[in-house]
Design a binder for these strands. Sequence first.
DNA 1: TTTACGAATGAACGTTCGTTAGTAAAGTTC
DNA 2: GAACTTTACTAACGAACGTTCATTCGTAAA
Lengths: 190, 190
Amino acid sequence: MAIGGKKKEIYLAAARLFRDKGYQASSMRQLAKEVNLEPSSLYSHISNKQELLAQICLGEAEMYVNKMKSIMSECDDVLEILRQISYFHVETALDDPISATVFSDEWKHLEEPNLGRFRNLRKEYESKIRYIIARGTEEGRLIDTDSMVLFQTFLSSFKWIYLWNKPGREVDKEALQRDITHVILRGLKK
Amino acid sequence: MAIGGKKKEIYLAAARLFRDKGYQASSMRQLAKEVNLEPSSLYSHISNKQELLAQICLGEAEMYVNKMKSIMSECDDVLEILRQISYFHVETALDDPISATVFSDEWKHLEEPNLGRFRNLRKEYESKIRYIIARGTEEGRLIDTDSMVLFQTFLSSFKWIYLWNKPGREVDKEALQRDITHVILRGLKK
DNA sequence: TTTACGAATGAACGTTCGTTAGTAAAGTTC
DNA sequence: GAACTTTACTAACGAACGTTCATTCGTAAA
């Protein structure tokens, strides 16, 4: 059997290509070469280049939204929620750094209607975090600094992991989760 | 005099284009349109597309390196140095968000030898900060967490400002400098 | 042996790309 | 006002792009 292997292979190669060269600089001819096909043969498996980017970005975005819902439904403590988000960000950046990079850096090359869908998902995700942070300040658990600064600083603190995590590097995931979360929450906690 | 007015105009338009669409998706034809020239006329002022990106990225990188040297030669206190770096990052992100974005997101499309030059400058800049942070931990001024985590978290904390700073937004620069620096250094200080 | 079908192919389409060549006008210097 | 430089133009180049098309291959069921 072993069906569907080729389609998956194409998606993985595309994600790697998009990460390394960027979406626009990645050609279907190069992608075909990486999966040992002729360019035209790609279209037996996928419908077009844009679909590749959309699947990667929207898939990743949905994962974040779902995780966020799950965390918030299971837990009510602001600091514990932020801790879990932090752990999740570190985990995804380490486990699938390729998709994480594409999601983070290449989404702007999405076309409508995918771009709109992506923005909605991201907005949904971010507004939940903003709400948590605002609540944290109200409850006196977080410092009383501009909530936009707290929110943005919190989220951008994870933006180096997937870039820094080169293939050869050995990483202790739990240590990294603990250290990053420690530094970030130290900055936010009252 | 007022020489080079057109050249400057081309560079500014190029930076804006690179930021909005990315380097690869920015065409010389579009750039020409933005400065009211025919595409070929651009080459009366610049030598090629790559040079535009190189000037922007390398110019920005040199600015950071020079500022870093200046800060470190004037000051010896670790926390004060980090504070000044933080203030400088916020300032550049607000004053020239376009160049800051291109520098941060599009450098990977540099070709040799510009790519090598860029990496050297960035390495020079980053190693100075790493040294400061390592010293800070040794001196007991910063927390005793993995120095890579401290370094990367510190630097990535500025990566949202130039993206968030939309044209219409009113920003109180000094307040932002104070707040961001406060949050970051709270996380790092012992 | 025939029928059916997904997978893969080579060739080609129309478009866009960065860039060059050649040239004419405008500005500057003597 | 002649000589020279700078700026801008039209036209075109070769290369690469994403994608389509008709066709062939390989396999497995009928």
